[in-house]
Structures are given as structure tokens and as C-alpha cells.
Design a protein around this nucleic acid. Structure first.
Lengths: 343, 343
DNA sequence: ATGAAAGCGCTAACAG
DNA sequence: CTGTTAGCGCTTTCAT
């Protein structure tokens, strides 16, 4: 069933049929009605390719994420999708699986399919890959700390420094002074920022940094465990630990359990990320929550802004949008207040 | 950059260029090399729409799932994606959000985009929706218990009856006899099957059913809690509970904690689904694990089979594929053996 | 082995 | 307000 047949059945020209599809205001109401009815009856669906060939637009954006099984990333993805869906765009979700090759292959696919824009979440792509995309004149925005970063690509990210600062401040407000940090996220940039935030908070309170209290590790539960063990074994162990990720914090708490150090009575632990698990372990983990969904929403909006301005031919300069994280008070820092929880 | 320009640059006709893309064996090696080089230099990317317009094929399948934030569904999705990706197909992931309207809208989008096949996971779609898809001659397969089910649409699902049977058998093997069931998943079909499996196991062991031990509820933590409370309060409480979902089991365990009933010492609890949380609560939940990823893989393979046979013009009759679940022994049933866990 | 040309289904400029 | 027609970029017969 194609436009020609509809035209024939309706006794009009293909142009008129096409018009009711694209500029219905330019068609006489009566003819329009009639054609619409014929379309309905014939269950006509305009050929996607033929339209695309004319418009050169797919109404599709590509979204590359590192891991679709990670609910955190999917929250961002949902944010992107929500915006896209509302604008009648379809989202092509690509699972890079944290492998550069896979990511590259997906980008190729996206370019081949002539998607209208790309959102990259924490991707491993390098300068040349990004340049490839830009060469195709495909609007692009990065969400989260990507491996490649520069001022010429728009970026939405979390203010990790401030997040870390807030975390440590919270510890201090709860009368902890001997505060250690276990840090070591990928990517590097975030690490540094968190460390800076930590130092900033200490400094502000005139607490002198203790190098023994600063431990850099890889980002997983095991290393959190090991690091915490080290801290416990110090001559003068800290009274509180700021872990730069919930995974590390969970590892740390695990170590405390094994060595019978009470959390938070003897040592307080605060994490970062607010992963689901944080609310399930005992004691429930106080942590810094990142606005994942919002990142997606803001990133997608930014992308659409760029796409629009590209359509209008005006130049838009790449922006960096900084989103703030939020302190989520639970039990692991012994604070009196508590957020209401499900069970 | 289009085929015409390449032809001009290479000093050949567009037909020849097109041939090196589609039937390279029909082009003289030398010309081929040359054209390939020109393409490379010009960074030529064939127009997706123009090709589609000729081939009438998108190399894309649609995948509708109820909730992208649910890692369980995403595991299935990953299975589908893995197969598709390997076959050089792109997957369009649609987040139905458990709303019929949204699902319908997505299906429309998919049909409009002329995707080559559809995988539906636990969808709410009804008979007429499915018929709509079939009318377009789009191959389709269902994964999991969908609202609409009939023998004329291929289906991949879990053998819930056997899963329930295995769960109850496990309890019996651990010397429990007074076994209650709390059941109430969506969708209905699964419920029934689990109840049947439960009864089957009891019967086999000549255990007489106690109607007080059979409680039907909605599928959430709270109702699990309430149901467990009821069971505790019985004159003769059960010694073990089979919950038809981990959510219910977790609610039940929660109730036990509140009313100081020891799990598994006083009452054993077994769940169903093996959600992530099952491994995080205390005591770790023994449960029935469904092969989610495999469901996706098998479903996708089935879809590609159908698509292939459609291309070849041969008829394939709809099949139902039944996948088995697996007992995951942890702590909540007091079994001696234990599966090794991460921490 | 290669080229000319028709056609895939639709849109839009142009003419009326 | 509507019809005619020239493309959009590519594939594929049919010649040569």
C-alpha cells in the first residue's frame, strides 16, 4: 500500500495525499477528510525510507552506555529516553560494555543509520572518535565523566568535588574529626575532584590532613575491604571513613563486620553514588546521591537544543552543565535524623 | 557525498559503484580496488534510506520491555541484543512502563519504522494488538508470560510449575512438612502454575494440603509481610513458606524479623526469581533462579528463525519453548550446602 | 565487465 | 486548492 494507490483510490494526485500528511492546512477540508478516510480504510503507513530520503532526518538519537545491566546507567538512559520520547524521537540504545571496540562499532552503526544526534555516557571513546562524529556534523553531548573531555564538546556532569565536600562536612558536623578517605573510581578525573573536596572540607575546619588516612585503590568491594582493614590496623585508626563510591564503602563495612568494629559506633562510613545496595546493607549506608535521571534529562535537552540550533543554522557554543549531588542520610554515620525508607 | 560523486571521482558509472557495494564479485578486481580507494578517501557512507527504499529491510528488530530500570528485564534484553548484534542487527529498545497505551504507541512506532521483527517481553498487549502486528506480516515472538497468549504466536517462557515443584521439594528434602505458600505474581497464568507445582510436590510426598497454608496476595513486599504475619498467627504455624516471588519472600522475612521468628531456624523461607536483593538480605534467600539471559537469547534466535523462513518463503509453525529454572541454595532454608558468594 | 536508465515511495517547487 | 513533475540516493535489469 503506497501513496500512489491511496491517490488512485481517493481520486486525487499523490501530491495532495502527501500534503495531507505534511501540510494538512493546505488541503481543502473536504478532500482532506476523504483522503484520511481512504488512508484509514487501506491501513496506509507511509514508507519510512522514502520520507527519510527526502527529509534526511531519522527522528532517532543514539545513546551509548557502558552497561545496560547497571541500573544507575539505565536511570540516565531513562532520562534521555523520556525527553526523546516526548519529542517524538526514538532512542537507539547501545550497550558498549565498557569495551572501546564495541563502542566504536556502535558509533559506526549509528552514523551509518544517520541518527540525528548522539548521547555518550561515560564512554571510552578517544579524541579521534569524537572527531569522527563531529566530522559527520552529528550533534553530540557527553554525560558523566568520559575518557575524552575537552571544552569543545558539551558535557553534563556531577559536581563531585562538592559532593565529596558535603560528605566530609556531614561527618564533621557529626563530631567526627579523624576522617579517612578511600578513593579510586574510574574515571580518573572524578577521583581527583573527590580528593580535592575532601581536603577542602578538612581545611575549612582547620583539621590537619593525615597522609595515613588517604588511601587510593581500585573501585570495587574487595579493595574497599582491604583499605578499611589497613585503616583499622593503624596505631591511631580514623573515626570516620569517606569512601569515594558505595562499592568501596560496602567493602569497608564488610571489613568492619569481620573485625568487629561497630559501624557507626566506632567508625562511621559514608559512601558516594547511592546505588540500590546502599539501602539494603546493614547498617544502611549514608551516601551522596547523584541525580542520574536528571543527568539524562538535562543531557538530552542539551542535545535537542544543539540539534535545533543546527537546523536553524545558528551556532551554539559547547557548554558544560554541572549538576549537584545530594546527601542521603541513613544509618552508617550515626546521625539522628533519618530519611523515611520503604521497609 | 553520494554514489554519484564517487562514480565521477572514480571515472565509472554509479552502477559499478553500487556493484562493489552489493555484488563485488561481479566487478573487475582492478576497478574494484580503485573504487574502494576512492570511497575510503571520500569517507563515503551509503545512504541508509536509499538502500532501505530498495531492499525494504531495516536490519533492525524491536524489543518491548515493561521496565528498563528492572535489571531482570534488562538481562533478557541483553540476551536479545547479544544475538541481534551478532547477526548485525540493531535493537530498538522500547520501555513500555507497564502501560498499555505506551506499549501500543511503541508498537506503532516500530511498525512505522518497518523494523524486521518484534520481541515482546511480558507485554500487556491484547489480541487485537497482536493481530495488528501479524497483519503487517512482521515476525514476532513473545518472551515470558504475556497477557495475550495463544498457540498461534511463538513463545518462550519459564516452566513455573516445575520451578515451584522444585522449591517445595527442596523444603521437603530439608525435612519440612508443614509448608505454606504465599502466591500472587502478575501475570495470572504463572500464579496458577506455581500453585499447581506446590500441590504436586505435596501430593507426591503424601502431605495433606492445609487450606490455611495457602494465601493469595498481590505481588509486593508489603503483602508478603502481611501474609507471613497471618501464617505466624495461626494456631499451628507452618514450618516453611514457599513464596511465589522474592519480593513476597523478602516481605515475609521482614515480618519474621519484626515478630522475632528466626529464619530459617523456626520457619524456612524460599522465594522465586532470584532478584539481586535476594543475595543481599539477611539471611540470604534461597530461591528459584530463572535463566533470564537465556530467555532473551532463545527468544531472539527463534525470531531470527522465523524471519529467515519468511525470507525463504517457507512456513514455520509457532512453537512454545519451555525453559527450566534452577534452585539457588542460600541460607533461608537452613540447608547445609551453600553456593559460594562474592562476599 | 560496465553503463544507461527505470524505479523504489515520497516531497516540494512550480504551474495552474 | 490541486496536479505535474523533478528529484532524494541507491539497486538492478537490460543492453552492450
Amino acid at each position: 500500500m503506497n501513496i500512489k494507490e491511496i491517490a488512485r483510490k481517493a481520486g486525487v494526485s499523490v501530491a495532495t495525499v502527501s500534503r495531507v500528511l505534511n501540510h494538512p492546512e493546505n488541503v481543502a477540508p473536504k478532500t482532506k477528510e476523504h483522503i484520511l478516510k481512504v488512508m484509514e480504510e487501506s491501513e496506509y503507513i507511509p514508507n519510512w525510507f522514502a520520507r527519510g530520503l527526502n527529509f534526511n532526518k531519522t527522528n532517532t538519537i543514539g545513546l551509548l552506555i557502558p552497561n545496560i545491566l547497571n541500573p544507575g546507567y539505565m536511570e540516565i538512559a531513562k532520562g534521555v529516553e523520556d525527553v526523546a520520547h516526548q519529542k517524538d524521537y526514538t532512542t537507539l540504545l547501545c550497550n558498549g560494555e565498557n569495551e572501546l571496540d564495541k563502542e566504536r562499532k556502535y558509533i559506526d552503526t549509528l552514523i551509518k543509520r544517520r541518527i540525528d544526534g548522539i548521547v555518550l555516557i561515560s564512554s571510552l571513546l578517544e579524541h579521534e572518535d569524537i572527531m569522527n562524529i563531529k566530522k559527520q556534523e552529528i550533534p553530540i553531548v557527553l554525560i558523566g565523566e568520559n575518557k575524552y573531555m575537552s571544552a569543545d564538546v558539551p558535557l553534563v556532569r556531577i559536581d563531585c568535588q562538592n559532593g565529596a565536600y558535603k560528605a566530609v562536612k556531614h561527618l564533621i558536623e557529626n563530631k567526627y574529626k579523624d576522617i579517612a578517605i578511600i578513593y579510586g573510581d574510574t574515571p580518573e578525573q572524578e577521583n581527583k575532584r573527590k580528593l580535592i573536596g575532601y581536603k577542602q572540607a578538612l581545611e575549612e575546619e582547620k583539621i590537619i590532613e593525615n597522609p595515613e588516612y588517604i588511601i587510593e585503590v581500585g573501585n570495587n568491594i574487595e579493595e574497599g575491604y582491604i583499605a578499611a582493614k589497613k585503616l583499622i590496623d593503624l596505631k591511631k585508626p580514623p573515626r570516620a571513613i569517606f569512601a569515594s563510591s558505595d562499592l568501596l564503602a560496602i567493602g569497608a563495612i564488610d571489613a568492619m563486620k569481620d573485625y568487629e568494629v561497630k559501624v557507626p559506633e566506632q567508625i562511621a562510613v559514608i559512601g558516594f553514588d547511592n546505588i540500590q545496595m546502599a539501602n539494603l546493607i546493614e547498617p544502611k549506608l549514608t551516601t551522596i546521591a547523584k541525580p542520574m535521571h536528571k543527568m539524562g534529562v538535562v543531557g538530552a535537552r542539551l542535545l535537542f537544543d544543539i540539534m535545533d540550533s543546527k537546523d536553524n543554522g545558528d551556532q551554539i557554543k559547547p557548554r558544560e552543565i554541572l549538576l549537584q549531588s545530594k546527601l542521603k542520610i541513613r544509618k552508617s554515620c550515626g546521625h539522628k535524623e533519618r530519611i523515611g525508607e520503604i521497609f
